[in-house]
């Protein structure tokens, strides 16, 4: 085994300073992704700073009606929180669509945001991968790319982000709070994950040593309804082929506002702003829903194995919006 040191953080500032000072250090929370990576040879940190004992495990209601979710709140606890279930069903549903009960009991909010792609080539050190080893090439380009990106990919990386939770957070305009050397900064989830470009090794805008302390959800607009729909090959314990998170507000038969994010289609949770634009003020009809999907998916770049993601996303978005619109009229 590659030897590594383990320390348990007692306060966030020291933890940040410790990791910033050592390029070979990493934060450890639930460990559901990092420990796998250490076994597979993808990561070999020489110091693990365990942050699970920091007082970051609270879920609080904010004065403006929003919510603040501590970084180390476990996915199971968050999904089951009564206020979250009432105000942000899309997020609760997304959490419950992810992984398995056992994994959700261990996985944390921050760790979920920071999990890395499950691309089979990224996870296999015997194959080239620009994300794992910059400049080595992308084996998925000429290989198996059924699960890969149709939006925002680059010739250097076709990987998709695996999180369900982050897709819902993107649609909710959630904000990540990260602590660095100079104190805390606020990063909208929509800007937190990156597109691959020519530096696919970087998944997010976080700097080494920055520590996520919380995620804040803005208040839910009155009358807004939300839902998460994940499409996968098997009924549970599978990553999304595609997923749709949607928050819908209507005025009678017209759409007042919609916030939509797609999962499983890009290197980051894909906020579908073109679709939102097309929907704003439109009639809440099946045709409008499909046209909105097309407005977003028109830019899709298809690979031999993943062309199905476009019609699957279109159909799923239409189904989710149809259900939300029907729910509103009830």
């Amino acid at each position: 085994m590659i030897p590594f040191d383990y320390s348990r953080a007692t306060d966030a500032r020291t933890a940040v300073a410790t990791v910033m000072a050592r390029p070979d250090a990493a934060f450890l929370a639930g460990g559901t992704n990092l420990v796998d990576h250490m076994k597979l040879g993808l990561a070999s940190p020489e110091l693990l700073v365990d942050v699970t004992r920091l007082p970051l495990d609270r879920i609080e209601e904010l004065p403006d009606g929003g919510m603040r979710i501590g970084a180390t709140v476990r996915n199971s606890d968050l999904a089951a929180h009564p206020l979250l279930r009432r105000r942000y069903p899309v997020l609760s549903q997304a959490l419950l669509a992810g992984a398995s009960g056992q994994l959700r009991n261990a996985a944390t909010t921050a760790g979920n945001l920071l999990q890395r792609t499950r691309c089979g080539y990224f996870q296999d050190v015997t194959t080239p991968c620009n994300k794992r080893e910059p400049g080595s090439g992308c084996a998925a380009v000429g290989g198996w790319n059924r699960h890969h990106a149709v939006l925002g990919a680059s010739e250097h990386c076709l990987a998709v982000h695996p999180s369900d939770m982050a897709v819902a957070m993107s649609a909710l305009d959630a904000v990540v709070i990260a602590m660095g050397a100079e104190g805390e900064r606020r990063i909208p989830v929509r800007e937190f994950h990156r597109l691959p470009g020519d530096t696919p090794e970087r998944d997010t805008v976080l700097e080494h040593g920055e520590l996520i302390t919380a995620v804040e959800l803005p208040p839910s607009p009155p009358g807004a309804r939300s839902a998460y729909r994940k499409v996968r090959d098997r009924a549970s314990f599978a990553f999304a082929l595609i997923s749709v998170a949607a928050v819908l507000e209507t005025d009678g038969d017209r759409v007042r506002d919609a916030r939509i994010a797609f999962g499983g289609v890009a290197h980051k949770p894909w906020r579908a702003t073109r679709a939102e634009e097309a929907l704003r003020g439109a009639a809440a009809t099946e045709d409008a829903f499909r046209q909105a999907a097309d407005a977003e998916l028109g830019a899709a770049q298809l690979l031999p194995d993943n062309a199905f993601k476009v019609p699957m996303t279109r159909n799923t978005l239409a189904a989710v919006l149809r259900e939300l619109a029907t729910e509103e009229r009830r």
């Binding site: 290989g143 549970s236 599978a238």
Partner: peptide
């Protein structure tokens, strides 16, 4: 390529 249980799917309970 899909040489693990996350990628090679067998039926789950659900």
């Amino acid at each position: 390529v899909n040489h693990d249980f996350a990628q090679y799917h067998v039926a789950a309970n659900a």
